[in-house]
Simulated assay, not measured.
Amino acid sequence: MAIILNDTISSDEILGKTEQHLHFIDEHLAIHKAMVSAFKSLKKAALSDGFTISVASGFRSFERQEMIWNSKFLGTKPVKDNQGNNIDITQLCDIDKAHAILLYSALPGASRHHWGCDIDIYAQNLLPEGQQPQLEPWEYEDTGPFATLSTWLEQNAHSFDFYFPYNQYREGVAAEPWHISFAPLSHAYEQAFQLDLLVSCLAHSSVAGKQVIIDNIEKIAQRYIYNVNQGKFNL
């Protein structure tokens, strides 16, 4: 049963266990229903300056995040280091596996994508026809296809209450210039988040390596969950 954490946010929303807070853009893509207007305004402003913004990833359920996590932990999906090199994760102990995965993939139950107010975006019109975004840092850097979009977002996202939670590497999660967050909602979710609820969720889950994660949860939380930009816009 979901626990009501405040007047509007439940534990199921925090943990990615419900879709009640979502607006579906299409059959597979959803964002928080209270963010729709702001996101439409951002898209409209971007379009007027020549960028056709699309969402590569919006809401992600606990089950989906668990699938991503487990496939990496078990070595069936590639895991990369901060230089983009593949790691042989099968050679690592469980805690080192967790740290390697957490560089790019959130812990199930602690992903900001569960909230629906954090999204990964790109501009399709900046790519050659038929090419899809990879969501890798080089695409948003000076010589990448989304360099101009990145500059535009840095200058304009705050006008629509969006910011970059992973605007730089802080010895935790890698920099993600494609990941924007709607501050009025994400700050409320951050305040409602409770570590004991995450631990309970993990304990009753099928998350690979969950015991070593639970045993080290406070250090993991400080490094990868709380260790984000708090909305001071990267101008």
Rank of each mutant, 00 (worst) to 15 (best):
A123G: 02
M1R: 07
Q132C: 09
L153I: 07
F146N: 07
A203S: 03
F162S: 08
I214G: 03
A203Y: 06
N6I: 14
G16E: 01
G130K: 12
Q191R: 15
V199K: 03
I213D: 02
N234E: 10
A110I: 02
E129R: 13
T143E: 02
G130Q: 13
H32W: 05
A30P: 00
A221T: 15
F73R: 14
L235Q: 14
L198N: 02
C201N: 13
D142K: 15
F73L: 03
F162G: 09
F73C: 11
F193N: 05
A45S: 09
I87R: 07
I180L: 05
S10L: 05
G84I: 08
S61L: 12
H21L: 11
G58I: 01
K210V: 09
H23K: 08
I217G: 01
L195E: 05
I68V: 14
I68N: 06
F162Y: 13
D142L: 13
A106T: 09
Y226A: 13
H28I: 12
H23R: 11
E218K: 14
A183C: 09
L202V: 03
S186G: 04
A192Y: 04
S205E: 04
E139H: 13
A174P: 00
F233P: 03
R60H: 06
G116H: 10
S41H: 13
E190L: 15
L197M: 11
D94W: 07
V173D: 03
Q132P: 00
E190C: 11
I121G: 00
C201P: 00
T52N: 14
A106Y: 05
L74P: 00
K97M: 05
P165G: 10
D120Y: 04
L198F: 04
R112V: 04
Y104L: 12
A123M: 04
S206P: 01
L197I: 11
S186H: 05
A100G: 08
G231Y: 06
L126F: 11
S71V: 10
N6D: 15
I25Y: 07
M1V: 11
A106E: 07
A2G: 08
A38K: 12
K43S: 09
H187G: 11
A45H: 14
H23G: 04
A183E: 01
P137A: 05
K97G: 08
E190I: 15
M1S: 13
C93H: 14
M67S: 15
F51D: 01
I31S: 06
Q131H: 07
R223T: 14
L107W: 01
K33T: 13
Y140S: 08
H113V: 01
I121S: 03
Y104C: 05
N156V: 02
G144W: 05
S105H: 10
P78I: 08
A174H: 12
A203G: 11
G109F: 01
L29K: 15
L185G: 02
H99V: 02
P165M: 13
K72E: 04
W69A: 08
D120P: 11
L15I: 09
D96K: 06
I3D: 10
F51V: 06
Q194D: 06
L149T: 02
A56Y: 03
H114N: 06
S200F: 04
E13A: 10
T8F: 09
W178N: 07
P128Y: 11
S41W: 00
P133R: 14
P177C: 12
N125L: 06
L153P: 04
F233W: 02
I89K: 12
Y140E: 00
I95S: 00
E66W: 06
